[in-house]
Amino acid sequence: SRSVIRSIIKSSKLNIDHKDYLLDLLNDVKGSKDLKEFHKMLTAILA
Rank of each mutant, 00 (worst) to 15 (best):
E37G: 06
L14C: 02
Y21W: 09
V4Q: 13
K33P: 05
V29D: 02
H18W: 08
L25N: 02
S1T: 14
L23A: 02
L46P: 01
I5G: 01
S12Q: 01
R2F: 12
L14N: 01
V4S: 10
D17M: 10
L26Q: 01
K36L: 13
T43I: 14
H39T: 10
L22K: 00
R2N: 08
L23N: 04
L35E: 03
K33M: 06
L22D: 00
L35G: 01
S11F: 09
K36Y: 13
I8H: 03
H39Q: 11
H18A: 10
L26A: 01
N27V: 08
A44W: 09
S11V: 05
D28K: 14
S7L: 11
S1K: 12
D24K: 14
I45Q: 04
D24F: 09
R6I: 08
I16C: 05
S32F: 07
V29A: 07
L25H: 03
R2I: 14
H39V: 15
M41N: 05
A44Y: 07
E37M: 11
R2P: 06
A47L: 11
I16P: 15
V29I: 12
S11G: 11
S32L: 11
I9H: 00
G31E: 06
A47F: 08
I5S: 01
D24V: 10
H18K: 12
L46F: 06
T43V: 13
Y21K: 09
K19P: 01
R2G: 05
E37K: 15
R6G: 05
K13G: 11
T43C: 09
H39A: 14
S7F: 09
S1D: 13
L26R: 02
S32M: 12
G31R: 05
D17N: 11
Y21P: 01
K33E: 11
L26D: 00
I5V: 04
D34S: 12
D34E: 15
I45K: 03
S12C: 04
H39G: 10
L22W: 04
I9C: 00
I8R: 07
T43L: 15
L22C: 01
H39S: 08
K19G: 01
N15F: 06
I8D: 03
D24S: 15
S12T: 03
S11A: 13
H39N: 08
V4L: 11
L14S: 00
V29T: 09
L35S: 02
L35W: 04
I8N: 03
L14I: 05
K33S: 06
D24I: 12
S32N: 12
L22N: 00
K33F: 07
L23S: 03
M41G: 03
L46A: 01
L14T: 02
N27W: 04
I16F: 08
D28A: 12
A47S: 09
S32H: 12
D24L: 13
M41E: 06
S12G: 02
D17P: 08
H39C: 10
K36E: 14
S1M: 13
S12V: 03
I45C: 03
I45M: 09
E37A: 14
A47E: 08
M41Q: 07
N15R: 10
I5R: 02
K19Q: 09
L14F: 03
K36S: 08
D24E: 13
N27Y: 06
L26S: 01
K13A: 11
D20K: 13
I16Y: 07
L26P: 00
L26M: 05
K30L: 05
L25G: 01
I16Q: 15
V29F: 03
H39E: 10
M41A: 03
T43K: 13
I45H: 07
R2D: 09
S7C: 06
K13T: 11
S32P: 14
L42W: 04
H39Y: 14
L26I: 03
S7V: 09
N27R: 10
D28F: 08
D28L: 13
D28H: 11
A47K: 11
Y21Q: 15
A44K: 14
S3L: 09
R2C: 04
K36C: 05
K30M: 06
K13Q: 11
M41P: 00
L42Q: 00
N15A: 13
K19N: 01
K30R: 12
S1H: 14
V29S: 06
L23D: 02
V4W: 09
E37V: 11
S11C: 04
G31L: 07
L42I: 12
H18P: 02
N15S: 15
K36W: 08
K40T: 07
N15D: 10
Y21V: 04
D20P: 01
F38H: 01
S32W: 10
H18G: 04
E37I: 13
K30C: 06
K33T: 09
I8F: 06
G31Y: 07
N15I: 05
F38W: 03
I5W: 04
K33A: 08
N15T: 15
L23H: 02
I9V: 04
A47T: 11
D28N: 14
K19S: 02
I8L: 12
L46W: 04
E37Q: 12
L42K: 00
L35M: 08
E37L: 13
D17T: 10
D34Q: 15
S12K: 01
D17Y: 05
S3Y: 08
K10F: 07
L25F: 05
L46S: 01
D24Y: 12
N15P: 15
D17L: 10
I8V: 06
D20N: 15
I45L: 10
S11W: 07
M41H: 06
D28P: 04
K13D: 08
A44N: 11
F38A: 01
K19L: 03
I9Q: 00
S11I: 05
D28I: 07
N27A: 12
H18E: 14
K30I: 07
K36H: 13
H18Q: 14
Y21N: 06
Y21D: 03
K13L: 08
V29M: 08
N15M: 07
N15K: 08
L42E: 00
N15V: 05
G31S: 14
H18V: 15
L35C: 03
V4N: 11
K33L: 07
L22S: 00
R6Q: 13
L46H: 01
L26F: 03
S11P: 01
R2Q: 07
K13I: 11
L25A: 08
I16R: 14
N15L: 07
M41T: 07
K33D: 13
D20F: 08
S7M: 13
R6T: 11
D34N: 13
L23G: 00
R2M: 11
M41R: 07
S12I: 03
A44G: 10
I16W: 09
D34P: 10
N27F: 05
D24Q: 14
K36R: 12
D24N: 15
S3F: 08
E37T: 11
V29Q: 06
H39D: 04
A47M: 10
A47D: 11
I16A: 15
S32E: 14
D20M: 15
G31I: 04
N27L: 07
D24R: 14
F38M: 03
S32K: 12
F38G: 00
I45N: 02
K40S: 11
S32Y: 10
L22Q: 00
I9G: 00
D17R: 15
L46Y: 02
I5Q: 02
L25K: 11
I5Y: 07
L26K: 01
D34K: 11
D20V: 15
L22H: 00
M41C: 04
S3E: 15
K10M: 15
K30Q: 07
R6N: 05
S1A: 12
D34A: 15
L42A: 03
I8T: 06
A47G: 09
K36F: 14
I9T: 00
E37W: 11
L14V: 03
N15G: 12
G31M: 05
M41L: 07
Y21H: 09
A44T: 12
Y21M: 07
L42R: 00
F38P: 00
K30T: 08
G31Q: 04
N27E: 05
I8E: 05
Y21G: 04
K13V: 08
D34C: 06
N27K: 15
K33N: 12
S11H: 13
A44S: 13
S3H: 13
A44I: 12
K19V: 05
K13H: 12
K40F: 06
K30W: 07
A44V: 13
V4G: 09
T43A: 09
V4E: 14
L26G: 00
T43G: 09
S1Y: 15
A44Q: 11
T43Q: 12
L46I: 11
L25Y: 04
N15C: 05
K30S: 07
I45P: 01
S3M: 14
G31K: 07
L35Q: 02
V29K: 05
F38E: 01
K10I: 14
I5N: 02
L23C: 03
I5L: 14
L14P: 00
L23R: 03
L35R: 03
A47N: 12
I5C: 03
L14W: 02
L42S: 00
L42F: 04
K30N: 07
D17E: 14
L23E: 04
L23K: 01
E37H: 10
R6P: 01
S12W: 02
L35H: 02
R6M: 13
K40M: 08
A44C: 06
V29R: 04
L22E: 00
H18I: 15
N27G: 10
N27D: 06
S3W: 08
A47H: 09
L25P: 00
I8M: 14
L26E: 05
L26V: 03
G31V: 05
F38T: 02
D20S: 14
M41Y: 11
L23V: 04
S11Y: 10
D20G: 13
S11M: 07
E37D: 09
K10E: 12
I45T: 06
L22I: 03
D34T: 06
E37P: 03
K19R: 05
R6A: 13
S3G: 12
G31H: 08
V29G: 02
L42G: 00
L46R: 02
I9P: 02
D20I: 15
K30P: 04
D17W: 09
D24C: 12
K40V: 10
I5D: 02
